[in-house]
Design a binder for these strands. Structure first.
Lengths: 128, 128
DNA sequence: ATGCCGAATGATAATCACTATCACTATCAT
DNA sequence: ATGATAGTGATAGTGATTATCATTCGGCAT
C-alpha cells in the first residue's frame, strides 16, 4: 500500500549517495540544489515511508530524527557532544545481551537504539 | 551557581516519592494537586537544573523528556510501543562492552542511552 | 538594617520539528 | 473511461520546549 513514487525515489537516491545522517531539511535542501523541488511535508512523509519499508534507517536524536542508508550492517552510534559528529560502531555481543534481557522478561523486541554520548577523538584532544 | 530553591526542592521531593518516569506536565500537575503551583517554565528549568546536578536522571524519548529518581543503580529501559509502559533493566556486561568500543576509538564516553522498543509481556499476550 | 547583585520566577511569546488538513493529482485495477 | 486508493504540496496547527522580560528572592558586604 506504500508506493515508491518519483519523489520518494529521489529522496532515497539522495540518501544512498552518501554516508551522512540526514534530517528532513538536509534532504529538501540537497534536492533543491539539484533542481528537484519537493514539498517539505512530502519529504517528511517520504522519509517515514522509506524507513517503514526498511529502505533507509532512522535514528532519533534529542532534537530531531535523522536518516541514513540501510544498505549497511546494523550498527549503533557514538555522538560527539562537542562537534556533533556521528560515528558508527557494531558490537554483536551487545545485541545478543539485549535479546537475553528481553527474553528473561517476556518482552518482544521490535527495535532498539543505543547512543553513546561524549567526546570524539579529535575533540578530546582539543579539550584543555 | 545553580540554586536548590523551594520550587526545585518541591519538584525533587515529588520525583523522589515514586518510581515513575515523569514529564514536565506530570510534575506540574502533581504539584498542583498538592496545592503547590509552580509556573510551567519553572518546572522545565527546575528539571533541567536538577538533572544537571545529578539529583535526578533524564531519559530522552522520541516525543518528550522524562525524569526519574537518581538514587537507584544505573539502568536502561524497555519501552512498550503499544501501552507506553517503561520497564527498567540493568546489564553490566553491556556497559563494559560500551566502554570497550569507545576505548578502541579514542572516544570519551560522558553518557549513554539504550532503549529497547517492543511489546511488554502483557501486550505480547494480548496481540492476536 | 540597607543596598546590591546574580540567579530564579512566572506569564507569555516565540521557536522548531513535525503532523493534520484539504484540494488536487497520479496510479492502478476493473 | 471510471472509481478507488494513495500521494502531493501549500499551509495551518500541534506540542514540547525555550526565550524574553519585568519582578522577586537570597546572600553578602557595607
Amino acid at each position: 500500500m506504500q508506493k515508491l513514487t518519483a519523489q520518494r525515489q529521489a529522496i532515497l537516491d539522495m540518501i544512498n549517495r552518501s554516508d551522512k545522517h540526514w534530517d528532513a531539511d538536509d534532504v529538501a535542501y540537497a534536492l533543491k540544489e539539484e533542481g528537484i523541488s519537493i514539498g517539505i511535508a512530502t519529504v517528511y512523509r517520504g522519509l517515514a515511508a522509506l524507513a517503514d519499508q526498511g529502505l533507509i534507517e532512522s535514528i532519533q536524536l534529542a532534537d530531531k530524527k535523522r536518516y541514513e542508508r540501510a544498505d549497511k550492517a546494523h550498527h549503533d552510534h557514538l555522538i560527539c557532544t562537542r562537534c556533533g559528529s556521528i560515528e558508527e560502531f557494531c558490537e554483536p555481543e551487545i545485541e545478543s545481551l539485549q535479546d537475553k534481557v528481553a527474553a528473561e522478561r517476556g518482552f518482544k523486541i521490535e527495535g532498539h537504539q543505543l547512543l553513546l554520548f561524549g567526546l570524539c577523538k579529535t575533540c578530546k584532544a582539543e579539550e584543555s
